[in-house]
Computed example of a mutant assay.
Amino acid sequence: MEFNPRKRTSNIFLLISAFVIVSLILWNTNSFFKKFKEEERLKMEIWATAQSELLQADEDQELGNLTLKVLGNNTSTPMILQNKDGSIRTNNMPEEMVVDSAYLQKKMRQFASENDPIIIEDRGEELATLYYGNSEVLNKLKYYPIALLLIIFLFGAVIFFFFKTNKASEQNKLWAGMAKETAHQIGTPLTSLLGWNELLKAENINPEVTKEIGKDISRLQTITERFSKIGSTPELEMHDIVSETEKAYQYLKRRSSKLIQFSFSSNIDTLLVPLNPPLYNWSIENLVKNGIDAMKGKGSISIKVEKTGNTVNILVADTGHGIPRGAFQTIFNPGVTTKKRGWGLGLSLVKRIIEEYHKGKIKVFSSSKEGTIMQISLKSNH
């Protein structure tokens, strides 16, 4: 596996650059909003001046074209003009609502919160008060920064999950590379051991000795095969789930302390399931060893094979101290362990073997201070 720190640096640089660009857009939008609001304020002050001329004009006095044009040119900004006698005029507001005094009072308070009212006066005498709200364009522009913030948040979430997935992928490649290298390194001395064992047999050594050595060599071959399959898609063939589970059970029973009470049961005699035996047996061994560790080397381990419909469940139960309910999901994550010593890789490997390779499911079926039951579920073709 090739580990390239420059790629990580470039990703971080791209992330920072993206945030800077979006932040500049947000800042520029905010500046534009403020400038647009100031221009709208100026437009309303000009309109107020024209209105002041209108209020001061005599009935027979003609207004200039500019004043009339200013007064008639505002078609976008909603306004409420309250004269000093209390009478009210509206502009650019729903006609069916302007007769509702409660509605007008509410809108006046709203407009006052959005923009400072403009006092129309002449020589110190107050003639009217102009309340105006934001135009439709300004209202849309006001929510644009919120939309940008949402985009930033979503963008950040996508980048976060991208890096998280990328990191997990790199870790998986690292572990797969280490596993394959381990299998490769074990292969050389293993071949040598096979040769030495054959020589011992030729020297008429006690057959029991060479037989036990052969078992250990076979065990090393199984371990090598398991590690060599990590990181690649293993081939699944039809195997009897009952006999394969019992095989793993018998192996562990012979090599465990006499303080551990083992039991095996099945409600079926035989059932063919797509399996990769070395990896499946590895999963059973990991679950049993975890149970033994939880019991501190003394207690009971039971393995049950139960067929329900098109599913076969393998239940591995121990009488250990149990798993906290809040850790039912996290214990399958790499690096998570409830032990004082441990790498936290056993259950994550089991999850990968069962769910990714065998398309099954694994979960904590139940757990309490009296013990834990782990359940593997696989699909059967019968």
Rank of each mutant, 00 (worst) to 15 (best):
I151F: 15
I151L: 09
I152E: 12
I152A: 13
L154A: 06
L154E: 08
F155I: 02
F155H: 02
F155M: 09
A157C: 10
I159G: 07
F162L: 06
F162G: 06
K164P: 00
N166E: 09
N166L: 13
K167A: 07
A168W: 11
A168L: 13
S169K: 13
S169P: 01
N172V: 02
L174H: 14
L174V: 12
W175Y: 06
A176L: 04
M178W: 14
M178Q: 08
M178A: 10
A179T: 10
K180D: 13
T182K: 05
H184G: 02
H184F: 09
H184N: 06
I186P: 01
P189D: 03
L190A: 06
L190S: 03
L190D: 06
S192E: 15
S192Y: 15
L193C: 04
L194C: 04
L194I: 11
G195M: 11
E198W: 06
K201P: 00
A202Y: 07
E203K: 13
I205D: 00
P207L: 05
E208P: 00
V209M: 11
T210L: 04
T210E: 07
K211C: 15
K211I: 09
E212N: 07
I213G: 02
G214M: 00
K215G: 06
K215Y: 15
D216L: 08
D216R: 06
I217H: 00
S218N: 09
S218F: 04
L220G: 01
L220P: 01
T222P: 00
T224K: 11
E225L: 11
E225K: 02
R226D: 07
F227D: 00
F227T: 00
F227H: 02
K229R: 13
I230L: 04
I230A: 00
T233W: 01
L236Q: 03
L236E: 06
M238H: 01
M238G: 01
H239T: 09
D240S: 03
I241K: 00
I241L: 08
V242G: 04
E244Y: 12
A248V: 10
Y249V: 07
Q250V: 08
Q250C: 02
Y251S: 04
L252P: 01
L252M: 09
L252R: 07
K253S: 05
K253W: 05
R254S: 11
S256H: 01
S257Y: 04
S257Q: 04
K258Y: 10
Q261W: 07
S266D: 06
D269N: 12
T270I: 13
T270W: 04
L271K: 10
L271G: 03
L272Q: 14
P274I: 15
L275F: 11
P277W: 15
P278V: 10
P278H: 11
